[in-house]
Amino acid sequence: MDRRAVRVEVLHIEECPSWREAGARLQIALAEAGIDAAVEYRLLEDPADLAGTVFAGSPTIVVDGADLFPAEPIGELACRIYPTPAGLRGMPDTEQLVAALRDLPRAGR
């Protein structure tokens, strides 16, 4: 698979601890999907921090400015729940991350 560079961010609030594990899973998924990217973390501490973001709860995984798991931005500092094969969880599993990353449009298309 070709390597492609993208910007990857984890938008999070401190009160939802799943952002740390989500970031670790994301690192693994990026490597498996053949994507050359460093994961950046952005702490949102105030409702004003949400302006201009696609924040849909913590953690929101953003690739090139778009939510990797598209959802409506919520406009408040809150935790996020993801549907996974194991039920509702505070983050997607690694396989879901890999699949979503592989579905990203390729540069130049």
Rank of each mutant, 00 (worst) to 15 (best):
G57W: 12
D36T: 12
V62G: 01
P73R: 05
G108P: 05
P105W: 13
D36G: 09
I13M: 13
R102Y: 06
A100S: 04
I74G: 11
L77T: 00
R3V: 13
R3D: 10
R25P: 02
V39A: 08
P17H: 03
C79R: 04
Q27C: 08
D2M: 14
L77P: 00
P59L: 03
T60F: 10
E32Y: 08
A29E: 01
Q27K: 15
W19E: 05
G65I: 08
M1R: 09
L77E: 00
I28P: 00
L30F: 04
G90D: 10
A51Q: 10
R106T: 12
V98P: 06
L77G: 00
P92S: 05
A37E: 00
A100L: 06
R3A: 14
A48F: 01
L68N: 07
E32K: 15
L43P: 00
D49T: 00
D46G: 00
P70F: 05
L97R: 07
L68R: 11
D49V: 01
A37M: 00
A66E: 15
L26Q: 04
Q96W: 12
G52H: 02
A5P: 04
L101W: 05
R4N: 10
V8L: 02
E76I: 09
P83R: 15
E95M: 05
A5L: 11
T84F: 03
A51N: 08
G34C: 08
A22H: 10
I13H: 09
L44H: 00
L30A: 08
A107C: 08
L44W: 02
Y82N: 03
A31T: 13
A37H: 03
Y41G: 01
V54C: 13
A56K: 11
A86V: 01
G90A: 14
G75S: 02
I61N: 05
R89N: 12
S58G: 06
M91D: 00
E95K: 12
E72P: 11
R80F: 01
L104H: 11
G65W: 13
V62L: 03
S58N: 09
V8K: 09
G75H: 03
R102L: 12
E9G: 00
W19T: 02
G52D: 07
E21T: 15
A24E: 15
R3T: 14
D2T: 15
V10I: 14
E72I: 02
R25S: 06
G65V: 08
V6N: 05
I81Q: 15
V39L: 10
R4F: 11
S58A: 07
I61P: 03
G90W: 12
L101H: 08
G57E: 10
A48V: 03
W19M: 04
L50W: 03
R4L: 11
V63T: 12
P105F: 08
G57Y: 12
I81W: 14
L97T: 06
A29Y: 02
G57D: 09
H12P: 01
R4G: 12
E32A: 15
W19I: 03
D103Q: 15
C79G: 04
A100Y: 07
G75E: 02
L26R: 07
R25N: 10
G87W: 03
